[in-house]
Structures are given as structure tokens and as C-alpha cells.
């Protein structure tokens, strides 16, 4: 048993720096994917609420399609398929694109839930006070929606973080690929993969916890608010 942990002592100096570097790539990769997902998600929500029926249907179809396809299939299709159309992107950017597209469908749901959670009377009171629809959205609806949306958005980021591991399969130098390489280099797959698991855990767990705590705190606050009129 002790022998198991002794191995980490021997190799830590070589493994840790490599993994830390790779972790940075993972973090930025998922962050960029998340930003793309936020932007696309907001566009989707806008499209879902528009008066133009064609746009609404397009948005709904997009969401349906994206939710029916595995991320890996999307990544492989983009990575190997796009060159046939003249567009050769490195794995990193295919990853950002794929994560962004898949993330957008989920983010759109979260944004919609947040906006719907704000009682329509809030907006009415704002319009009645003479605020334009835009001002009403900016100063009254959005701030309240943010509270509802924050925990699930944090969860979405954690999801993206985990999904970024699939980019290893399209030759992106992130945590999982580095781990795979190291595992074969040193013939110590068990130790390496447990270690890399810990790396992911160290990044994801605090965020998951934050999200849960936020949800509990905001949930409590909202119950009080609810009894005093929304």
C-alpha cells in the first residue's frame, strides 16, 4: 500500500509541472468554449422569443439536433470532416467550437428559466414607471434573473470542463492527452490516471460546491421574497 504512494514521491517532480501546464490549457479551452456557449445561448433565447416564426422554429430545431448528438461525434466530425470543405482547424479550436455549440443548447435553457422566473409584474411596474423595454430589462428583469441563473451556469461550466477531456481524442494538448501520453511513457497508468482525476477534481469540485451553496442561499432568499409579492 505504501509502495503505491511511494511512486508518487518518485515522479512528482516530473509529472506535476507537465500536468499543471496541461491544466492551464484545459481551463482556457473550457473557458473559451463557455464564453461561446453564453453568446450562442443568448442568441438562441432571443430567437426563441422573437415574433418571427421561422427564427423560432430554427432555434428549436437547432437545440433539438444538438441535444441528440454526442459531443465526441460532433468533435470528430468537425475535426476530420471540415478539411474536406477546405477548413482545417487545430484540435484546440475545434474543441472550443464543439464545446460552445453543445453548451449553447444547455445555456439557452438556463437563461430561459432565469428570465421566466422573474414575475411579469416586475416588468409591468417598470414599464408603468416610464422605463423603456430595454431599460426595464437591464435594470429590473436581468438583475433578478441572474440570481436564478448563476448556479446552473456554474454547473454548465463544470460540465464543459469535464467534456474538454474529449478533446484529447482530437489531438489537443490538454490534461487528458498529457495523462495518456505520460501513462504510456512511464508504464504507470493507474497512478497517472488517478493523479489526473485529482487534478480535474481539484478544479471542478470547488465550482460545484459554490454552485450548490449559491443555490441554497438564493433559494432561501427567494422564498421570503415570494411571500411579499413578486
Amino acid at each position: 500500500m505504501i509502495a503505491f504512494f511511494a511512486i508518487y514521491g518518485d515522479y512528482a517532480a516530473e509529472w506535476l509541472p507537465r500536468l499543471v501546464l496541461a491544466a492551464r490549457v484545459t481551463a482556457t479551452l473550457s473557458l473559451l468554449g463557455f464564453v461561446l456557449a453564453l453568446v450562442l445561448g443568448a442568441v438562441l433565447v432571443a430567437a426563441q422569443r422573437t415574433h418571427v416564426a421561422a427564427l423560432r422554429r430554427a432555434a428549436a430545431a437547432f437545440v433539438q439536433f444538438v441535444r441528440a448528438v454526442p459531443l465526441l461525434a460532433l468533435l470528430l466530425a468537425l475535426y476530420f470532416g471540415l478539411p474536406s470543405f477546405g477548413l482545417t482547424l487545430p484540435g484546440y479550436w475545434v474543441g472550443v467550437l464543439g464545446l460552445g455549440i453543445q453548451g449553447a443548447a444547455y445555456v439557452a435553457e438556463v437563461l430561459r428559466g432565469g428570465l421566466d422566473a422573474v414575475h411579469r409584474g416586475q416588468r409591468e411596474a417598470a414599464l408603468a414607471a416610464g422605463l423603456t423595454p430595454l431599460a426595464a430589462f437591464r435594470f429590473v428583469v436581468l438583475p433578478q434573473a441572474m440570481r436564478v441563473m448563476l448556479p446552473p451556469l456554474l454547473n454548465a461550466y463544470v460540465s464543459l470542463l469535464k467534456d474538454s477531456s474529449l478533446c484529447a481524442l482530437i489531438a489537443t494538448d490538454e490534461l487528458m492527452l498529457t495523462a495518456r501520453a505520460m501513462a504510456s511513457e512511464y508504464f504507470l497508468p493507474l497512478h497517472v490516471f488517478v493523479l489526473v482525476g485529482l487534478f480535474y477534481f481539484a478544479i471542478a469540485f470547488p465550482l460545484s460546491m459554490c454552485s450548490r451553496l449559491l443555490a441554497r442561499r438564493l433559494g432561501r432568499g427567494r422564498r421570503t421574497l415570494g411571500t411579499n409579492q413578486g
Partner: peptide
């Protein structure tokens, strides 16, 4: 135009944030 008309609602609709 709405600026010229003040409205008070049954459910108040004060902005909680």
C-alpha cells in the same frame, strides 16, 4: 406617455433587488 401616469398595483411589484 406612461411617465405622466402613475400606477399602483394590487401586488405592489416593488423591485426586490
Amino acid at each position: 406617455q406612461r411617465r405622466e401616469i402613475g400606477m399602483v398595483f394590487q401586488l405592489f411589484y416593488l423591485w426586490p433587488h
